[in-house]
């Protein structure tokens, strides 16, 4: 039965990847343009006046954060929009009727979100090479952090989609939660610039751990202890993944 389940998983992944490639103008092109603008405006124009941050050029400092921002938003938005569309158009029923265990449905959708997040991250990384000579301190840390982060936000996107009842509901979290957390998660600055109180508040932001751990992979420097970052990211994944599976098993938002 494992073989059948793996074939089902492959079908879900094929469908998911095919979906965002079919609408690449809406899925892959916008982050490339937006992030290019970040590089031009924050990196080149404003960054040249800021000078160094954390001992490197401002452009080199923000590049890992901008890549991570693309990974986070694309992983999340891929799953939230795809899963909600499947609910809205009711073709999620194709999976519910079939003998696909819920964990494979979850892995399939999360895998689809991860693939878009990672592809977008790769596109943004390629664009960044036009603006900065990227250093790499540890490939292992870079790949581990980017994989875990895209897993986490893809899973979070699915949870959002399960609870969403209308299209507005899938934009509330990205707009009012995800964007502020990302912008305040140390993408554009080191938290050592903040007063002590706000530094402590920033530590409650999970995105801070991802951005800093990712930046460590490039620059070898981080505001956060690397082990702590991995523990926190992993803990979030375990909790969200278990919750998402529970929701699918109970049929929340899918079955009456």
């Amino acid at each position: 039965m494992v073989r059948e389940n793996l074939v089902a998983l492959q079908s879900i992944l094929t469908k998911e990847v095919g979906r965002y490639f079919r609408i690449w103008v809406q899925t892959l092109l916008p982050p490339a343009i937006t992030m290019s603008l970040y590089f031009v405006i924050f990196g080149n124009l404003i960054g040249s006046r800021i000078g160094e941050m954390g001992g490197v050029s401002y452009m080199a400092y923000i590049t890992p954060g901008i890549i991570m921002m693309a990974v986070i938003t694309n992983s999340y938005s891929n799953v939230v929009s795809s899963f909600f569309s499947a609910k809205f158009q009711r073709h999620i029923e194709e999976l519910l009727v079939a003998p696909v265990p819920n964990i494979y449905i979850l892995i399939g959708y999360v895998g689809g979100g991860m693939s878009r997040g990672l592809l977008t991250g790769a596109i943004v990384t390629a664009i960044s090479l036009f603006f900065v000579d990227l250093e790499v301190h540890s490939y292992g840390v870079i790949f581990a952090v980017v994989l875990l982060t895209s897993t986490l936000f893809s899973t979070a996107g699915l949870i959002n989609a399960v609870f969403a009842k209308k299209f507005d509901d899938i934009s509330i979290v990205p707009t009012f939660v995800l964007t502020p957390l990302t912008y305040l998660g140390g993408v554009f600055y080191t938290i050592t610039l903040l007063p002590e109180f706000w530094q402590k508040v920033s530590l409650a932001n999970p995105v801070l751990y991802m951005v800093n751990a990712f930046r460590y992979g490039f620059l070898g420097q981080s505001d956060i202890d690397l082990t702590t970052a991995f523990i926190i990211i992993s803990a979030f994944i375990v909790v969200l993944f278990s919750f998402a599976l529970y929701l699918l098993n109970t049929g929340k938002g899918l079955k009456s």
Partner: peptide, 29 residues
Amino acid sequence: LVPQEFNFSQFETPWQIVINQAGYYGIPR
């Protein structure tokens, strides 16, 4: 199951819809 209301992705082709469904039942493409 043939349901009462249309419940397939309107953006996919008939080929994709049917072959993906085969996959959900563990039948390789």
